[in-house]
Amino acid sequence: MPRAMPTAPRQTLVRAEPDGPRRVSLASDVLRTVDLSMVHSDPSLHREKLPMRTCVGCRQCRPAAELVRLVADTGVNPPVVVIDHRKTMSGRGAWLHPDPECLGLAVQRKAFVRAFRIGGLTVDSDLLMREIESVATQRGRHKPATEEQVAEDMSTP
């Protein structure tokens, strides 16, 4: 009959504690030294995370506060894309820079149909263009279209 292998004796370590020595079994517990300065870091180093969204026109990822939310109004037949000014309308949303160039790219790429996942979607680009320009003006990010407009705005009557 084969003999059983002898088991190694359990090693113990005596740790000094404020209330007296304490025996710890090395086989059951793993002792680690934790640097508390790493755990409790300076809160000023933490940056607040902002919700990020991707513009369906230019595909850039930006904070949601910089973008305009668009939704498909399904109450109308056929469904129409409208701006959700309060960002509270129900349904799938698509995010877009308040920039006419991004709107043009989104319409050209047919990004709204993919984003809303609705067939027969109608995009009134002229209406959306006017609304997006008004949003850009309200936010103070309206860019003049040409240098001539800039010169005209700066001239005295």
Rank of each mutant, 00 (worst) to 15 (best):
S125W: 02
H142N: 08
P9N: 09
V24C: 07
I83S: 14
D124S: 00
P43A: 07
R139A: 15
G140V: 01
M154I: 15
R117W: 06
S155C: 05
D124F: 00
E131H: 03
H46E: 15
G20K: 08
R114T: 06
T88Y: 02
V81T: 06
F116C: 04
A4R: 12
E66N: 00
P43G: 06
H40A: 15
R10T: 13
T146K: 00
R53W: 04
V107T: 07
L36M: 00
T122D: 08
L67C: 06
P63I: 00
L127P: 02
L105N: 12
R23Q: 12
L103V: 14
P144L: 03
G119D: 14
D84R: 00
V56M: 08
L26G: 02
L121A: 06
V30L: 01
T156F: 14
E148I: 06
A151F: 13
C58G: 01
K87N: 09
E152D: 09
R3M: 04
K143Y: 11
H97F: 14
V34P: 02
G57L: 10
R3G: 07
L45G: 09
E17A: 15
A8P: 10
P18G: 13
P98I: 03
L13S: 01
H40K: 10
E133M: 03
P79H: 09
H97D: 14
V76N: 05
C55M: 03
T156G: 11
A8T: 13
A106H: 00
N77F: 14
V34F: 08
T122C: 05
Q138N: 10
G104D: 05
A64N: 02
D99M: 03
R10Q: 13
R114M: 05
D29K: 07
G75W: 02
T33S: 13
N77D: 15
V113C: 09
L96D: 07
G140I: 01
K110S: 14
L70I: 07
T88N: 07
D19M: 09
G140N: 02
C102Y: 05
T88A: 10
L31F: 06
L36S: 00
F116N: 00
G104T: 06
A111W: 05
D42L: 07
T33N: 10
A4Y: 12
V14R: 09
V113G: 10
L127Y: 11
R86I: 04
S134W: 01
P2T: 09
C61Q: 12
D73Q: 11
G57K: 04
C102D: 04
G119W: 13
P63Q: 00
E101S: 14
I132W: 03
T12W: 14
I132H: 01
M52E: 15
Q138R: 07
Q11M: 10
R53A: 08
D153P: 04
R62L: 03
G75C: 03
M129E: 14
R10D: 11
I83V: 15
R32C: 14
G119R: 07
E101N: 13
M89H: 10
S41W: 12
A115M: 11
V71R: 00
S37Q: 09
P2K: 07
W95Y: 08
V14G: 08
M5F: 13
Q149F: 06
P157M: 04
V30H: 05
C102K: 01
P98Y: 07
